[in-house]
């Protein structure tokens, strides 16, 4: 194996609702050490579910029904509970969308960061305390000793997200998953948090999986991008290539929405994920639909750019 820190193969996630909803339908990708991967798509396309699945953490009634997730070669999906616990928070960590509800409201933030150290082998209390202070300084919270005694509600949204990032980086994970990390924040704060994420992952060498509905955020931070539609990857490649020469009509529509003059939403709605989908899932909304679209398209192209579309080939 090369230096892949995360390998996902044929991931399927299903929600045991009535009728069952298959939110992720065969997603696979690899992430190299230090790489920054963006995942984009409309809401409900399976990107957030994939994010939580990467830690084996899908909320019930959701369940990973198929696939493989390897973090630094260690398979998560067949791992024993204790091994899985040991990997979470040390080798792979996650930054959640809403830092207010995602932090324990009745515990001081210093304690919350310290817990992440305590249960991943930091036995000496003094060194834990020093590490907490160091982390708080690292994420740009001044006066860390005082901040460590604050409760989440005493901090601003941006500061809370910095705390979240400090927790995520506490054990210098190889992979950092960030699910819409700035969606709950102001635009100015958003820029600072993104810069911080870039800076810190560069320093610690962590690879990052950034989930965002905002293509501009991905363009700014990431090297590579996956475009999700209806629980599948419809286009993937380097940010430069995909954003400059989008091959999939859906990617084009998204880009138009984010950067173009035509800011109207894409007509139609994503397909019902509780049903079987044959052929290209985007076809019903696609203006360039052809007869071949009733067959399943496969991801094709070169390493730096692949697309699953019968119409728009990679150029």
């Amino acid at each position: 194996m090369t230096d892949a820190v995360l390998e996902v193969r044929d991931l399927h996630v299903e929600f045991a609702t009535d009728p069952p909803v298959r939110a992720v339908r065969g997603v696979g990708f690899t992430l190299a050490a230090g790489e920054r991967l963006g995942i984009v798509g409309e809401s409900g396309c399976g990107k957030s579910v994939t994010a939580t699945a990467l830690l084996g953490l899908v909320d019930p009634p959701g369940r990973i029904v198929e696939g493989s997730i390897r973090v630094r070669g260690k398979e998560l999906l067949s791992a024993a509970a204790a091994d899985l616990r040991a990997i979470r928070g040390s080798e792979i960590a996650m930054v959640f969308q809403d830092p207010m509800s995602s932090l324990n409201p009745v515990a001081r933030i210093g304690r919350q960061i310290e817990d992440v150290l305590t249960y991943h082998g930091w036995q000496d209390r003094g060194s834990r305390r020093r590490r907490v202070a160091e982390l708080l300084r690292l994420v740009g919270l001044p006066d860390p000793d005082r901040r460590a005694r604050a409760y989440p509600h005493e901090l601003s949204g941006g500061m809370r997200q910095r705390v979240m990032i400090a927790m995520a980086l506490a054990n210098e994970p190889a992979v950092l998953v960030a699910d819409e990390p700035t969606t709950a924040l102001d635009v100015t704060v958003e820029a600072q948090i993104l810069l911080l994420l870039e800076d810190l992952t560069a320093r610690t060498g962590a690879a990052i999986v950034l989930i965002s509905h905002d293509l501009r955020v991905v363009a700014e931070v990431c090297d590579r991008v996956l475009v999700f539609y209806a629980g599948r990857i419809v286009e993937e490649g380097s940010v430069d290539e995909v954003f400059a020469r989008p091959a999939h009509p859906y990617t084009r529509a998204l880009l138009e929405l984010a950067f173009g003059r035509d800011r109207r939403a894409i007509p139609g709605a994503p397909p019902d994920l509780s049903s079987m989908i044959t052929g290209c899932a985007y076809a019903p909304r696609c203006s360039r639909r052809i007869a071949a679209c009733s067959d399943d398209p496969v991801l094709e192209g070169r390493d730096s750019h692949r697309v699953a579309c019968w119409v728009g080939a990679v150029r």
Binding site: F15, D18, A23, S43, V49, D59, P61, G62
Partner: peptide, 12 residues
């Protein structure tokens, strides 16, 4: 994640 509590659980 916005998939609400499963409708089957609710129904049960």
């Amino acid at each position: 994640m916005t998939v609400a509590v499963s409708s089957r659980t609710l129904a049960l």
